[in-house]
């Protein structure tokens, strides 16, 4: 049937052989999985990121189940105890369980990070989508407005709002949203600007579809990719911002356990050198969490970016 051709088998041959074997075994069926998701799963870093993220996220979410301690409960007889079976991460200067505080602190830090990122994304997309599609005066006004808020020094805003409304978790979230939405707006708007020249948009317009429907129902799904990527990255950024604000004494009131506030214990050189358990585990958890989010974000970006093959 086929003539035997004798030649050296190349790498290409082997590759094709493998492909053929795979096909015969039925492995190459069209996957039902989303292509982006598949690409993402192929990215080892991103997968590790998701796993780490989920571990920390779930641990914090289930804090009351995992730990029997109250994060605020002081016990002066149990001060500054090193890690043990009773206290996995030891206790702090007031005898509070550091592990418990880390878990509960994580809840708030995540709330701040995710809440701010979501809030900023929501406002940014809502405005960017419509303004980018419609253009005109509205777009110009919002664009200027976004510039105003982006160039507004964050520090002033933090101190000002902090002292007007009192320092608190939600104020921090509001401040991060105020300073953060502009970037999302510009991103969404830029994407919409290029999308609106697309033929499908033009044809829908020609059909006389409602602007809102075109913008939010048909164009938005095509523009949301980079925003989602940005969402993850800005979550990470806001978590770090929270820590920095705590360091400057402008964050959430110090009695509230957040990652930033717990980590602040390391400001004290004595604590830093002698009670490593008060800051090192928290520091590692914060860094791991932020790294994992960044890895996910990177993976998302790579997998949703059609210009990058492979």
């Amino acid at each position: 049937m086929t003539a035997e051709v004798t030649r050296k088998r190349t790498r290409l041959d082997r590759k094709f052989d493998k492909l053929r074997d795979a096909e015969e075994a039925g492995l190459l069926k069209r996957s039902k999985m989303n292509r982006s998701l598949r690409k993402m799963l192929g990215n080892r870093l991103a997968v590790i990121g998701v796993v780490v993220f989920l571990i920390i996220f779930l641990a914090c979410l289930l804090a009351p189940v995992i730990s029997s301690y109250d994060p605020q409960m002081t016990d002066l007889t149990q001060m500054t105890k090193p890690p043990s079976m009773q206290h996995l991460f030891g206790t702090d200067k007031l005898g509070r369980d550091v592990f418990t505080r880390t878990l509960y602190g994580g809840r708030l830090s995540m709330l701040i990070g995710l809440g701010s990122a979501l809030g900023a994304a929501f406002i940014g997309v809502l405005l960017g989508c419509y303004a980018g599609y419609k253009g005109g005066l509205l777009d110009q006004v919002i664009l200027r407005l976004s510039e105003v808020f982006m160039s507004f020094p964050q520090l002033i805003l933090v101190i000002m709002l902090g002292s007007i409304f009192g320092r608190g978790l939600w104020n921090l979230v509001i401040i991060f949203i105020i300073t953060g939405w502009g970037a999302v707006y510009r991103q969404a708007r830029a994407k919409m600007l290029s999308l609106r020249e697309e033929e499908y948009v033009q044809s829908m317009k020609a059909f006389g579809l409602n602007d809102f429907v075109i913008a939010y129902k048909h164009m938005l799904p095509n523009a949301i990719g980079p925003v989602v990527v940005n969402l993850t990255l800005s979550t990470a950024m806001f978590i770090l911002d929270e820590a920095a604000m705590s360091f400057l004494g402008l964050g959430v009131p110090p009695e509230v356990a957040t990652w930033g506030n717990i980590l602040n214990a390391a400001q004290d050189l004595y604590v830093m050198q002698n009670y490593w358990w008060m800051w090192l585990p928290v520091g590692v958890v914060v860094s791991l969490f932020v790294i994992s989010i960044n890895c996910i974000g990177d993976g998302l970006r790579d997998s949703t970016d059609p210009t990058q093959q492979g």
Binding site: Q72, T74, L76, L94, G249, P253, P254, E255
Partner: peptide, 15 residues
């Protein structure tokens, strides 16, 4: 006072 020791003291008194 904005230092940590004050917050710790307040927490202890509260307890």
């Amino acid at each position: 006072y904005t230092d940590q020791a004050t917050v710790d003291l307040m927490t202890a008194i509260q307890a």
